[in-house]
Structure formats: C-alpha cells, structure tokens
C-alpha cells in the first residue's frame, strides 16, 4: 500500500492531494494505473518538468515501489 502525494496544480487537476494505492509495484505501474483512471491526470504527470520523489528522494526513470513507500509527483517549483 503506497501513499501517493500530488502537489501544486496536479492536486487541483486530480481533485485529491493524497491517497493510498495498493496495486502498483513500480512507478511506471503507478503512472499507468492513475492514467487509466484519469487520463488528464496521467498526461499531466508525464508532462514537462514534473519530477517524482520516492520516499522523499528524487528518482529519474522507473523504480520499484515498496509496500510502505511514499511517492510524490512534483510539478515545477517556485518559492520566494
């Protein structure tokens, strides 16, 4: 059961900020599952500048998701 977090415009688009996902064993499987439910969200998650953090560390490409993992989708960042 991985915890999935969306930030910024991604959570507004999806209509949720945080949820548990049981069925995904990898980031690519998670993307496919979310895109099947909500194609618009799926496209946004694959969009330019969106990074993925697995257990609070940025990952590039695919990675396995453990049962207690936290996966966050991070759109382009802006502070100050």
């Amino acid at each position: 059961m991985a915890r999935v977090l969306l930030f910024g415009r991604l959570s507004d688009l999806a209509g949720w900020r945080e949820r548990e996902v049981a069925e995904a064993g990898s980031i690519s499987a998670l993307r496919a599952l979310l895109a099947a439910e909500d194609p618009q969200l799926g496209a946004a998650l694959a969009g330019p500048g969106v990074q993925v953090a697995l257990d609070q560390a940025i990952v590039r490409g695919d990675a396995a998701i453990g049962p207690k993992a936290e996966v966050a989708f991070l759109p382009p960042m802006s502070g100050g």
């Binding site: 930030f7 910024g8 415009r9 991070l74 759109p75 960042m77 802006s78 502070g79 100050g80």
Partner: peptide, 14 residues
C-alpha cells in the same frame, strides 16, 4: 540562496 529559492526549492505558489 535567493536564486535557488525562486526556481529550485520545493514550493508551489498560487
């Protein structure tokens, strides 16, 4: 530090 905070720090601004 400010240049970094404006474009790379994990914040989302609405």
């Amino acid at each position: 530090l400010m240049d970094y905070l404006k474009s790379k720090a994990p914040f989302w601004k609405k």
